[in-house]
């Protein structure tokens, strides 16, 4: 069975110059699309890729990467609420579809429940203080 998955690879500095992705294609028959890539000098490399291939090959390929020291994670998007930046206005409250952003009706204090957030990002740009950060990992 052929599957397609979006994953995030993080390479330690020692692997940045190794032909790891080449082996993924050649030895494990995986087809992939690079969605995002960045390598910072003297730091680690990050690559967001979409991989297609047989489920079996995918597992073997992922094992190979892990053995080489590459961190493999499914792509996850995350909205982070930076409480320090929040001016507690409440413009986000009617926008949030899941009530992850909540307001206590007595104190009118705003809070954020990460568990309920579906990372739809609707709150990100309407926030006057730009207190939300979107993280990909």
């Amino acid at each position: 069975m052929t599957i397609t998955k979006k994953i995030v690879l993080t390479f330690p500095q020692s692997l940045v110059d190794k032909p790891i992705v080449f082996h993924l294609i050649k030895d494990y028959n995986l087809v992939f699309n690079i969605l995002r890539a960045s390598i910072t000098p003297k730091e680690e490399g990050l690559m967001v890729i979409e991989i297609s291939g047989k489920e079996d090959d995918f597992k073997k390929g992922a094992d190979y990467l892990k053995k080489q020291g590459v961190n493999v994670q499914p792509l996850k998007k995350d909205v982070k609420w930076v409480g320090k930046k929040c001016i507690q206005c409440g413009a986000c409250i009617p926008i949030c579809p899941t009530n992850a952003l909540k307001i206590d009706r007595d104190s009118m204090k705003i809070s954020f429940d990460e568990e309920k957030c579906i990372a739809c990002e609707l709150c990100v740009r309407p926030c006057p203080a730009r207190a939300f950060e979107v993280r990909l990992y």
Binding site: I87, Q88, A91, I93, P94, M108, K109
Partner: peptide, 13 residues
């Protein structure tokens, strides 16, 4: 209609 505020009541307090 759901309401939203631009003024921070808790900050006013």
């Amino acid at each position: 209609i759901p309401t939203g505020s631009l003024s921070g009541y808790s900050k006013a307090v």
